[in-house]
Simulated assay, not measured.
Amino acid sequence: MDYKNIYIEEENNIATITINRPKKLNALNKRTIEELHVAFKELDEDTGIKVIIITGSGEKAFVAGADISEFSDFSIQEGWQLAAEGQKLLFNFVENLSTPVIAAVNGFALGGGLELAMSCHFRLASENAKMGLPEVTLGLIPGYGGTQRLPMLIGKGRAMEMIMTAGMIDAATALDYGLVNHVVSQEELLPLGHKIASRISNNSSVAIKYAINAVNAGFKYDVNGYAAEVDAFGSCFGTNDFKEGTSAFLEKRKADFPGS
């Protein structure tokens, strides 16, 4: 795909996707969502990529929301389709990706931007980051998973307050709420992301895939997370990574995981 709104950089088994619509504060439009879907899919299929970092261009915004001009005149059916397709193509897709995805929130993460960050496996933020779900000021509600993921991450009461007031929280509050794992300066954000990604990439990509699936299962109403963990744990015993990991441990050497 010919990317117009994103670009990808690869280094040491780590891919960084940058959303590049600075004049629109990196707002998500249909084209950007489609490009991100293709990028995540291709990177996930690339066995040489162990971790994906996603961030926004510039110093103002990660993603400042959805591109409202695209849907301001939508009908009920079109609005339903917008949310359903977006969740399938990007937000649910990222959450269930086998490759770990880290959001490096480098500024405003509002509406669809915060929803994108929350769909990632965890989040880092720069000190200037601001996060919120302002949809009710438009007569809408979050439609890309915000009403579901925010309560899971910060609790029902805090999520209800953020959604109903449409208020923004700063990076320090997000850290206190558990919405982000680390807060650093803008200059330190991507280096920290790469440092954590490098630590992840040293481990078994197969085991990490199973861990992602097991953790996600615990947040699904129709899945027994404990049973999913048992199944995943058992499956690990049939992998080459398990054989290498246990052999390396017993031989007191560093494991060289084949990723299978």
Rank of each mutant, 00 (worst) to 15 (best):
residue 237 F to C: 09
residue 152 M to T: 13
residue 244 E to K: 01
residue 61 A to S: 13
residue 253 R to P: 04
residue 156 K to M: 10
residue 183 V to G: 01
residue 219 F to Q: 14
residue 156 K to H: 09
residue 123 R to K: 05
residue 257 F to C: 06
residue 243 K to C: 14
residue 78 E to Y: 05
residue 186 Q to G: 01
residue 238 G to Y: 14
residue 18 T to Q: 10
residue 59 E to A: 03
residue 144 Y to C: 06
residue 46 D to E: 06
residue 254 K to D: 12
residue 140 L to W: 09
residue 27 A to S: 13
residue 128 N to G: 05
residue 4 K to Y: 06
residue 57 S to P: 07
residue 167 G to L: 12
residue 91 F to E: 07
residue 217 A to K: 07
residue 49 I to Y: 04
residue 224 N to M: 10
residue 29 N to F: 08
residue 165 T to L: 10
residue 35 E to N: 03
residue 259 G to E: 12
residue 57 S to W: 08
residue 158 R to H: 01
residue 20 N to M: 09
residue 1 M to T: 11
residue 228 A to W: 05
residue 223 V to H: 00
residue 135 E to T: 06
residue 203 N to T: 09
residue 31 R to N: 08
residue 58 G to M: 11
residue 54 I to W: 02
residue 76 I to E: 15
residue 215 V to L: 15
residue 135 E to F: 08
residue 134 P to I: 14
residue 236 C to G: 07
residue 53 I to D: 06
residue 61 A to F: 08
residue 241 D to H: 01
residue 52 I to L: 03
residue 258 P to L: 15
residue 70 E to K: 00
residue 198 S to A: 07
residue 15 A to R: 00
residue 149 R to T: 12
residue 233 F to H: 09
residue 5 N to E: 10
residue 103 A to R: 01
residue 51 V to H: 00
residue 44 D to F: 05
residue 105 V to P: 01
residue 248 A to D: 12
residue 200 I to V: 13
residue 114 L to R: 03
residue 142 P to C: 13
residue 117 A to E: 13
residue 73 D to M: 07
residue 194 H to Y: 14
residue 214 A to I: 04
residue 67 D to V: 05
residue 255 A to N: 12
residue 248 A to C: 06
residue 95 E to I: 07
residue 260 S to D: 14
residue 171 A to N: 00
residue 223 V to K: 00
residue 238 G to A: 15
residue 70 E to A: 03
residue 141 I to F: 14
